[in-house]
Simulated assay, not measured.
Amino acid sequence: MKIIVPFITLTALFFGMLPAHAGGCYVDPVIEYSGSGSITSAVFLRDEACMDGSIVLGTVPSGASVSIIGFTDGWYRIEWNGARGWIGMQFAKNDASKTGKIWASYREYMDTLPSIKPGTSSPVSTPYTSDPTMLSRTRGYILLQVQSHGEAWYVDPVTEKRYYMKDGPTAYQMMRSFGLGVSEKDYAAMAGGNWTIKNRLRGRIILRVQEHGEAYYVHPHTLEMHYLKNGDEAYRVMRLYSLGITNADLGSIAEATIPLK
């Protein structure tokens, strides 16, 4: 298993480098391709052509030969090692040709050619469960993909799944969705150094429900409380105190979509 290393001082290098799709997910048509391609850098194989809410099916290694069968909004649809899924177009060299067929509906295309997990013949229907050992090392942390574009993920200690922290508004939604209300008595005890309460809430986002709902992130290692003034500040602070992680290790933690509240 690869070692997760602290990644604090270099986080600024990755600001603003997250992939952007102006049209939004699942909006553009799917252009059908037929032919081969090669992977230029190790990349996650996803069940959907979107960062938000998609499931990582596996990691396609650098140099792998793949079949490219489709394209939409910056994503290639590929078949590899018995699996079928989506990868970011920047991670592949495309030698395939367009067939001339265009699927106007992304969802109709996916219903016809669903994603398939590596090593199986079954369409993807449920996410993987997280690896217990990796969870024990990452629960409550913000993780940065150091082998990709510095994408940030929050591993919620309660659901034990990771959630993509795309930007400030997403961080604000995380505060609302994962925030745990605490009394002023408990907050005062934590601020005063009560390690018992802090340890119980390590990695959690807490809300001072009796004091305008102010939010704090309890760092899972130092147990320090970091004030999250708003979404943009939460995004900055939580990335600042993150850990770097390899693509392979990140792929062993189940992914989910942030619940709306």
Rank of each mutant, 00 (worst) to 15 (best):
I39L: 13
N81Q: 15
S41V: 05
F71K: 11
G74T: 06
G23Y: 00
I55Y: 12
A83K: 02
G74R: 13
F71N: 04
I39C: 09
D47V: 02
V60A: 04
E79L: 03
I55K: 15
G24Y: 09
V56W: 00
T40Q: 12
A49T: 00
E32T: 10
E79I: 09
G85M: 05
R77Q: 07
G70E: 13
R77A: 11
G82E: 06
Y76M: 01
P61V: 15
G63M: 09
A49S: 14
W75S: 06
P29F: 09
W75R: 11
G23T: 06
S41H: 15
A49G: 13
I39K: 08
G63R: 09
S38F: 08
I69R: 15
Y26E: 10
P29V: 09
D73H: 04
R77H: 06
S41R: 15
F71P: 00
V30H: 10
G24W: 06
G70W: 02
R77I: 05
E79K: 13
Y33A: 06
G70H: 06
R46E: 08
G88I: 04
G53S: 11
T72D: 04
G53P: 09
G85R: 12
G74W: 15
V66D: 04
A22C: 01
I78Q: 13
A83I: 11
P29C: 12
P61Q: 02
S62P: 00
I78T: 09
A83L: 08
A22I: 10
G24M: 12
D28F: 03
P29N: 04
G23N: 12
V60W: 11
S67W: 00
V56F: 06
G63F: 05
V43C: 12
G23V: 02
V56C: 14
R77D: 14
A49K: 00
G24R: 09
I68V: 15
V27A: 05
G23M: 04
I78D: 06
A49P: 14
T59I: 15
S34V: 06
D52R: 13
I39D: 14
C25E: 05
D52L: 01
G58F: 02
